[in-house]
């Protein structure tokens, strides 16, 4: 491990101050499942870890049917998929949280960390986007809210400014007759980086889709929303689902790398989009 120091912040303001004092090589430490490895392997210059897990606002889950769901950015994943409100109303989020890393990773890793890493394949990000989440960001200039769809700007890049960090994530309460689903493709059955991942949230009025939000990951420089014109305002049929899958495939701009080929990822964009639409619709029908 490179030479670094550790500091524990007790409040959001203290964390901002620590980050500010530490300069560009001060990094937020939430679950640490990525940043500790990056620091150890000297792929990221880190001189100070600011631990935000002892700040009340960054940990814990609160839910009510009017305000929706708020999850502290550093809340470990096991608490998310272990929360009955999340499982009942935010299926896509529960699904993603349940399979990131393995059990031990889930004891530490967080949604805020996954989002702040802004990896193109970040498994929770499609779910966060499909569920129309908002990130609450704190920094030297106070607090601001950023829709998660606008958060990532490129591979490993995002809107966080100097000394800013994610405090919590907010998800509106899902509409009546809605459902969400998440799926990924990996070569093994656990412990892999997604070759493609997808999340869908949709609202049904009878058979007709009144609202749809579909996000795709690992098939572009960042997780992105898929156009849903093929679906919204139309009845949910094999044809409309296939059209939505086709739209996903057309929007995807994957790269060839050791984890997947362009052809494979384009194809999986279609397959996984269709699968999450069907699963979300099943939940919407209740």
């Amino acid at each position: 491990m490179q030479a670094l120091k550790y500091a524990r912040a007790a409040s959001v303001d203290e964390a901002v101050q620590m980050l500010r004092d530490g300069g560009p090589t001060a990094k937020v430490l939430a679950g640490g499942t990525d940043i500790i490895v990056l620091a150890r392997e000297r792929r990221r210059k880190v001189e100070l870890f600011v631990d935000i897990k002892h700040i009340p606002e960054t940990t814990g889950i609160s839910y009510d049917s009017s305000n929706g769901l708020t999850i502290g950015a550093a809340t470990p994943l096991y608490q998310i998929y272990g929360n009955s409100d999340v499982v009942r109303h935010y299926s896509a989020l529960a699904q993603a949280s349940h399979v990131i890393g393995g059990t031990a990773i889930q004891g530490r890793a967080s949604l805020g960390g996954n989002l702040a890493n802004s990896g193109p394949a970040g498994d929770s990000i499609p779910a966060q986007m499909a569920l129309n989440g908002t990130a609450l960001i704190a920094g030297p200039n106070g607090r601001r809210e950023v829709p998660i769809v606008d958060f990532c700007t490129g591979p490993g890049q995002n809107v966080l400014g100097a000394d800013e960090f994610i405090v919590s994530l907010h998800f509106p309460h899902p509409a009546a007759h809605s459902g969400s689903a998440w799926e990924r493709f990996i070569p093994r059955n656990e412990m892999d980086i997604a070759v493609c991942n997808s999340a869908t949230y949709l609202v049904l009025n009878g058979d007709v889709v009144t609202e749809a939000r579909i996000a795709l990951g690992a098939v572009g420089p960042k997780v992105f929303m898929v156009p849903t014109d093929a679906l919204v305002g139309k009845p949910l049929t094999d044809e409309t689902i296939a059209a939505a899958g086709e739209a996903a495939k057309a929007t995807a701009t994957p790269i060839d790398d050791m984890r997947g080929s362009v052809k494979q990822r384009k194809h999986l964009s279609d397959v996984l989009t269709q699968r999450t639409i069907r699963a979300a619709a099943e939940r919407a029908r209740g």
């Binding site: 550790y6 470990p76 890393g101 530490r108 412990m191």
Partner: peptide, 24 residues
């Protein structure tokens, strides 16, 4: 964090001890 050989319980929760800073 990919092999689990360093697994310990931290405040009762399963974690990879290689992915926890001692200072934490």
């Amino acid at each position: 964090g990919n092999c689990g050989a360093c697994s310990v319980l931290l405040d009762g929760r399963l974690v990879n001890s290689c992915l926890v800073m001692a200072a934490e």
